[in-house]
Design a protein around this nucleic acid. Structure first.
Lengths: 145, 145
DNA sequence: CTACGTGCAAACTTTTTGCTCATGG
DNA sequence: CCATGAGCAAAAAGTTTGCACGTAG
C-alpha cells in the first residue's frame, strides 16, 4: 500500500487544464479527507473544514466531494441507508467494516485485478473496477459485548 | 449457482415460530423479488406488487423488505446515492454492475470465503461476510455508444 | 380473539439545486 | 475581468414512522 499521492500543486494544475479552480474550500476539503485514516461522512468532513473555514456550507462540501470524485481524486462508498462515506485514497485497496459501530479500516491485500478478464468473458461486460469489502465485528466492539 | 431456495411454506412456519405472520403483502413482495433476475429497487417491487394488490403502500414494501432482510431472506445493496437495490438470492454470489444504465447481473464464480481468515488475522475483526462487486459497461450500453 | 401488520400521510435524513455574490487565475 | 465556485435556503429524493384499522393464526 502507501502508494504515491498526487500533490496539491499537481492537482491544482490538472484542474486548471480543465478550466476548474482550486479554491480554498476545495483544497481544505481534500486535505481533511486525505489526512484521516477514517473513512468519514460528508458531515464529519464539513465539521472539520469549519474549524478552518468557519462559514463553509455543507452544500459546498457535497459539491466538492462530487467534483473530486469525478476527477478520480476521491472515492465514495455507500452502506445501508445512512450517510455515504468518503475515502481520500484512490489507489486500489479493500475495506473491512464493523457492522456494529460503522468503523471502516483498510485491508492490506494484493488486489485481484486478474479477475477482470474472467468476469468479462463470463458476463460480456467491460470491467473497469471492482470492490471487495468484508464486514464483521471490530476488535473494540468485540471487547465491549 | 442455482442453489435451493426455501419454500414459502418453510418460510411461513419459520416466521410463525418467531411470532411473525405471513401476510399476503409479505408473500407477494417476496415472490416478486424472487421471481426476477433483476436486482430491483423498492419502487420497482412496489409497482409489481400493485398489479396484484392494487392498494398496497410503499411503506409496506419498505417495512417488509427490512423485515425480510433481518430474517436473512433478502439482501440489500447500495450504489451511489440513488435507491437501494434488493436481491432475493441470499446464497453467496457476486455482482457486476453497469455504471451507465445501472443493470446488475450475477457473476458465476467460486466464492472467496477462505479470505476471511486472512482478513481476521490482519485486522483483528471477526468477519462474517464479504461482498465483491465488479463495475463497468454492460453489453447493451457498449453497443449503443 | 388479539398481537402483528397494513394503509395513509406526515416526518425525517441525506443530498442536490437555484440564485446571488465572491474570487481564483 | 469573468467564468467558476461559494453561501444560503429551499427543494428533492429516499426511507421511516405514528396512528387507527384490518387480519392471520
Amino acid at each position: 500500500m502507501q502508494t504515491h499521492k498526487k500533490s496539491i500543486s499537481e492537482i491544482t494544475s490538472s484542474l486548471r487544464d480543465k478550466g476548474m479552480k482550486m479554491t480554498q474550500q476545495r483544497r481544505v476539503i481534500l486535505d481533511v479527507l486525505r489526512s484521516t485514516k477514517q473513512h468519514p461522512s460528508a458531515e464529519w468532513i464539513y465539521n472539520q473544514v469549519r474549524k478552518i473555514i468557519p462559514n463553509v456550507s455543507l452544500g459546498t462540501v457535497y459539491r466538492n466531494l462530487n467534483t473530486l470524485q469525478q476527477e478520480g481524486l476521491v472515492l465514495e462508498m455507500n452502506y445501508g441507508k445512512g450517510q455515504s462515506r468518503y475515502d481520500g485514497t484512490v489507489e486500489p485497496h479493500y475495506h473491512v467494516r464493523c457492522i456494529q459501530c460503522g468503523r471502516i479500516d483498510d485491508v492490506e491485500f494484493d488486489t485481484y485485478d486478474h479477475l477482470h478478464d474472467q468476469v468479462e468473458s463470463r458476463t460480456g461486460f467491460s470491467i473497469s473496477e471492482h470492490r471487495l469489502e468484508f464486514s464483521g465485528i471490530c476488535p473494540d466492539c468485540t471487547k465491549s459485548v
